[in-house]
């Protein structure tokens, strides 16, 4: 009996080691490519929200962590753009906690004055066919933010049309666009009031 258990335990251990070795080997082979893919993906998304003429540094390498309730429960990443050493643009991830179905994470790009240069949806679980028009490949809706500025904290324009603002809602889905409009508003207010702290922040993103 004991012998059988010992033998089985040994066998299990051998298989566990062999399987782990296989996974480790594949991980070793693909690790660099994966990191490269993620980096490329990041650069691509950043280029979509911040015009490449607006900064002269490599924004994907100037990353700081921001902690503030208004832009998301967890720490958010901000990529800083400098033009000739002068702060010129920012792209930051924000979380809208009040989507129709859970969190929506966004990437928002702004110039130094807080004018929006682009918003993209990074991830969401909104209803397909209704709320997912916030993806650029489904609809041009996110482009309606381009070039918009927030005039004062109570700007009535910065809301969906149903609430008296200037952004379209979707037929059958108001909650999703409203969540994004509100989240971007909070992000702009946050950026405008913390600009100096953000660009001098030492809270660098961890290299993962």
């Amino acid at each position: 009996m004991r012998k059988a258990i010992e033998k089985n335990a040994k066998l299990l251990a051998i298989f566990a080691i062999a399987c782990t070795a296989l996974v480790a080997f594949v991980d070793f082979l693909t690790r660099d490519t994966i990191a490269q893919q993620q980096q490329q993906n990041l650069i691509k998304s950043l280029a979509q929200v911040v015009n490449s003429n607006a900064h002269s540094n490599n924004m994907s390498e100037a990353c700081v962590l921001l902690n503030d309730e208004s832009i998301g429960e967890t720490a958010q990443k901000a990529y800083l753009g400098f033009y000739n050493e002068q702060p010129s643009a920012i792209a930051m991830t924000i979380t809208a906690p009040d989507g129709y179905n859970g969190n929506i994470t966004l990437l928002i790009g702004m110039n130094i004055d807080g004018m929006v240069t682009g918003i993209r949806t990074l991830s969401h679980q909104e209803t397909p066919g209704l709320g997912d028009k916030i993806e650029q490949r489904k609809s041009d809706w996110v482009l309606s933010f381009d070039g918009k500025s927030l005039e004062g904290e109570n700007d009535p324009q910065w809301a969906v049309k149903k609430d008296g603002g200037s952004f379209d809602q979707f037929t059958g889905a108001t909650i999703t666009p409203r969540a994004i409009v509100n989240a971007s508003k909070r992000a702009i207010i946050y950026f405008k009031s913390h600009k100096n702290d953000i660009f001098t922040s030492q809270n660098k993103c961890q290299e993962s």
């Binding site: 299990l12 298989f15 399987c19 296989l22 996974v23 693909t30 994966i34 893919q37």
Partner: peptide, 20 residues
């Protein structure tokens, strides 16, 4: 348990390869 180990190992490999 051994079958599960083997399957999990292959799935993880596929996942890594696809990610790359």
């Amino acid at each position: 348990p051994i079958f599960v180990l083997i399957i999990a190992a292959f799935v993880t490999c596929v996942q890594l390869l696809m990610n790359a």
